[in-house]
Nucleic acid binder design. Structure first.
Lengths: 327, 327
DNA sequence: CGCGTTTACGTCGTTCGTAACGATA
DNA sequence: TATCGTTACGAACGACGTAAACGCG
């Protein structure tokens, strides 16, 4: 059993059981992978894959158990290399961030900018997706770090660090009648007008839908879009009133009315999620404390080492406080 | 980085930084280990050990971090091999049990006997020690399984499975006056006579000492011994009255008076402790359910997979019920 | 002078890539 | 026939063990 063999094994699985494709990913030849796979199977004494003809058709039950262990071993090998790279103060590497579009577009740019300035040799990969997908990316080891939001408890995957709290805002075109309404906006007001919001708000478990359900109201969703920029565009076009994350409303959006909605919808928390049992490269740690300045390097290290969510975090700031650190 | 290199690394540490000794343990030559160690250090780019002259003097800080990761990787490699061996229904292997003398002498023989009968090719190694040592053996990976007793909560190391409950008994020579005393023995009675008990009862946190302290009494410990056989011998010799685990009193000990003491001392629980994240060989699982018949194979597998202590165990039997399974 | 480590060297095994072959849809 | 996996072969590398040299107590 070799680390190479295990690396090939997971590469084959990750390539969808296509050995040729897997070979490219690991920068090796296809016969090499075939042979190593055979040798591994010979040593273990059973088939890792069920063959259909010559092709791999599926992974066996025992195979997936081995795969799981192999993933852990490779992750630990990566940890050792990370320890070494940190000790040698290496400044190149990569940072794969799995996150939602809103975070990538409005919350992360500042921290990624600093990172890139301090570590120009680190290549950052943003991997956008929906909340569930994002955490799946992290679990599968395809991302080093995830940034996601929840309404209440932290995601159960990995180690979650609170980054900041945020609220929803309602946006309307400059001359929209809603802006002239008696000021404390109500859900009933909102139910009267066509809404434009995120795709996720169609899901029955979305916090937007929950708020209306709790009030016994039925919102009129005129349109959904995958990101806030699209929502703002269509609000401007007059399709309806937008409901979006406060981060998505920029100072430059002067043509849009901003109507606070924090009394209507539950507050959200954005979390940084790290895989359990990982050694972070120094630049990742720096990125984290830059993105979530209320956290200390030690807090993060401790949370990772303990791998159980820590007793109590320092209170995470709101988005407003977050983007304007203590002057 | 090779698995071989990591295996050599931990062998060197486990051999007390003596490369020659480590080489023997891994069945390789000393120059081989030296060279692999150097190559590993070259690849990682830093020293794993601090040298004094040519000898290894200590492990570096980064070295111990690597060591920790290496141990995990090797354990996972062993897990993969265990999966393979189970699948091939291999009947040879070894079982290293770290435990206390009392368990080894009185509780384990039956289960080990069955194991040996069913799997004659499995070699069992009993590694006796005190409670703390036993768990250390398990943590260091020098034992596959530990059997220890506590008065209350399970040990925090690894995954603990309750095996059975037991009580203490007081034993006296046949003609000892204590046996004629008004029957419900009291701590005051015991404080009047010289006692013979385990070495551990001298520790200030021992449950024996706790019981006397709580009653404001001072026991007279005439003698301590490391195991129950010695205690019984010296009780017979008239040195005093023995206080020992009920398991240690055999049916054949007819010359000794058995005085129940469960109302005087807290009840104990014996636990089977397994390392986290391990794949058990089939014969180990069989041994466990044989030793703790109230447990199901599924209970054990689930507890290991979850690696968090399960919500609620089936109630563990008392020692008396334990040795005489439901007739 | 013994113990333990490193260095040097020769042999063996293994890996890897290229190329040809085979099977499958 | 195109795609994907296996087999075959030769070259290069790397691991390992033996033997000798070096440092240290």
């Amino acid at each position: 059993m070799t680390l190479t063999q295990l690396r090939y094994l997971v590469a084959i699985v990750d390539a969808g059981l296509n050995i040729t494709l897997a070979a490219e990913h690991v920068h090796a030849t296809q016969p090499g992978l075939s042979k190593q796979l055979r040798q591994l199977e010979d040593e273990l004494g059973f088939q890792l894959f069920v063959r259909k003809g010559k092709s791999l058709d599926a992974i066996t039950d025992a195979g997936s158990q081995v795969l799981e262990r192999a993933r852990i071993m490779l992750a630990e090998a990566a940890n050792i290399r990370a320890i070494a790279a940190n000790l040698r103060s290496e400044e190149h590497g990569e940072l794969r961030i799995a996150t939602t579009h809103t975070q990538a577009r409005f919350a992360l740019p500042a921290a990624i900018g600093s990172l890139n300035q301090r570590y120009p040799q680190v290549s950052v990969h943003l991997q956008p997706g929906r909340d569930g997908e994002v955490l799946a990316q992290l679990e599968a080891g395809h991302a080093d770090l995830a940034v996601v939001s929840t309404v209440g408890a932290p995601p159960s995957t990995g180690v979650a660090l609170p980054a900041y709290h945020w609220k929803r805002v309602v946006v309307a075109p400059g001359n929209h009648p809603l802006a002239a309404a008696p000021h404390p906006l109500s859900l009933a007001d909102l139910a009267e007008v066509p809404l434009v919001s995120y795709e996720s708000s169609l899901r029955s478990d979305s916090s937007l839908r929950n708020a209306f359900d709790a009030a016994g109201l039925q919102p009129q969703i005129a349109m959904t879009a995958s990101d806030a920029d699209l929502i703002k565009t269509y609000v401007r076009a007059g399709l309806g009133v937008g409901v979006l994350a406060e981060m998505a409303l920029l100072d430059s959006d002067t043509d849009l009315q901003r109507l606070p909605a924090d009394h209507l919808f539950a507050a959200c928390t954005t979390w940084i999620v790290l895989p359990r049992e990982t050694v972070l490269r120094d630049y990742v740690l720096e990125f984290i404390v830059d993105f979530a300045p209320h956290l200390d390097r030690r807090d993060v290290s401790r949370a990772l080492a303990a791998d159980t969510p820590p007793t109590e975090w320092p209170p995470a700031p709101s988005w407003q406080a977050h983007r304007q650190p203590a002057a």
